[in-house]
């Protein structure tokens, strides 16, 4: 498959924005297993973003790490500081 990253694909741009936004990376245990990008407004079948076909393995790891950071950031905002500063202290 393609071995070069697209210069300006929408997801790459958004993920880079996330990476540059200062959201701390997830340093706790565990990992993101899978990411399904986008909404699916089509009301007859499941749509899949295929931009991934142009991603390298390296960039795929960047996306998974960035999405982990997004999850932590949104979870922190929602739980208003309830997130343990040390993941070992998690209930």
């Amino acid at each position: 498959m393609a071995t070069s990253e697209p210069q300006d694909c929408p997801w790459q741009e958004r993920i880079r924005q996330v990476a540059a936004s200062g959201i701390p990376a997830w340093n706790g245990p565990g990992r993101v297993l899978r990411v399904k990008l986008g909404y699916n407004p089509n009301s007859s079948s499941v749509g899949s973003v295929v931009t991934v076909l142009m991603w390298t393995t390296v960039f795929s790891s960047v996306v998974l790490n960035a999405m982990a950071a997004v999850v932590v950031s949104e979870w922190k905002r929602q739980s208003a500081g309830a997130l343990p500063s040390n993941p070992d202290d998690a209930p």
């Binding site: 997801w11 958004r14 993920i15 996330v18 997830w26 706790g28 245990p29 565990g30 990992r31 993101v32 297993l33 899978r34 990411v35 399904k36 990008l37 986008g38 909404y39 999405m67 982990a68 997004v70 999850v71 932590v72 949104e74 979870w75 739980s79 309830a82 997130l83 343990p84 993941p87 998690a90 209930p91």
Partner: peptide, 18 residues
């Protein structure tokens, strides 16, 4: 929501998030 996605995480990460 930003970016819109569904993110599958493993048990360790779920536990780590609390």
């Amino acid at each position: 929501d930003e970016p819109p996605a569904l993110v599958w995480i493993d048990q360790d990460m779920a536990r780590g998030l609390g």
